[in-house]
Design a protein around this nucleic acid. Sequence first.
DNA 1: TATAAAAATGATTTTCGGTTTCATATTTAA
DNA 2: TTAAATATGAAACCGAAAATCATTTTTATA
Lengths: 144, 144
Amino acid sequence: MKTELEYLNIYQKKHGLKRSRQRNRILEIFLSTDRHVSAEDLLEMVKKKYPDIGYSTVYRSLNLFHKAGIARLVEIGDGVARYENALKQKQHHHLICENCGRILEFTDPKVDEMIEKNARKKKFKVTRRRIDVFGLCDRCRAQK
Amino acid sequence: MKTELEYLNIYQKKHGLKRSRQRNRILEIFLSTDRHVSAEDLLEMVKKKYPDIGYSTVYRSLNLFHKAGIARLVEIGDGVARYENALKQKQHHHLICENCGRILEFTDPKVDEMIEKNARKKKFKVTRRRIDVFGLCDRCRAQK
DNA sequence: TATAAAAATGATTTTCGGTTTCATATTTAA
DNA sequence: TTAAATATGAAACCGAAAATCATTTTTATA
Ligand SMILES: [Mn+2]
Ligand SMILES: [Mn+2]
Ligand SMILES: [Zn+2]
Ligand SMILES: [Zn+2]
């Protein structure tokens, strides 16, 4: 099983991109969290260890990680692009608490399968699925 | 079965809002299409018949229709808020062609039910679901 | 190792929706 | 008819994404 860095190097070579110290450091920090991070979030984490890295580079690196298949885009509908490690966890879906913002996750191959079936009926070739469920998490339900 | 205008009037009365000529005209145009329209889209349609109505009013009216339950928000992930008639069609899900932007629709109570089940397992109270399936529509598949 | 072309960086600017503001017009209850 | 409240339309504002640009770094090759 290839590491994320290997994935990145392969992608870079394939597309005639050069390596960079900053990019590797940003990857290091990205891999150190299990959260769903925005460019802004990640910048803040990166700055703690590497204060000289700028926003643009973090922003561009995240996009690159995404294209390279290392980062998965998670949109929870607030207009902010967030990313999660795509290799550590396989594709799953999100339960988003509208009160506290907490994100729970679930996987259910049956759900995916049935969506696939509906798409097939319409002769639609699926490349990507997104299921977001909004509501109240257990904690927030308790305190209300 | 109540009409959309009746819904609107009830909502307005309940919230101490006044009626307005522009709002009714915007509703008229909104009801005349089966598309998923953004404020910009709807403005363009409105302007053809009522050139003096401005963007702000269309924008605010759509938000109001949404709050009144007449318009359903459809976000396909490009950062543009679109709306569809919520009364004519019940809640359904979208197949979004990444090539031509066409939107196909499907309903499947089983899918919803299973999502509900997954949420229940996590003690999560669902208020809203969004299922978006991205890929290639039949037309675009044919011509490739 | 030295060189030069190409890519990467970081600060800054631009873009692009959504949202708010504000002076004026319209609606509506009394 | 009046006055209070809401609605309107133009314009300003906002925040995140994306692009720009002068400078630095990488890397292939001589
Ligand atoms: Mn996740
Ligand atoms: Mn629809
Ligand atoms: Zn919560
Ligand atoms: Zn298509």
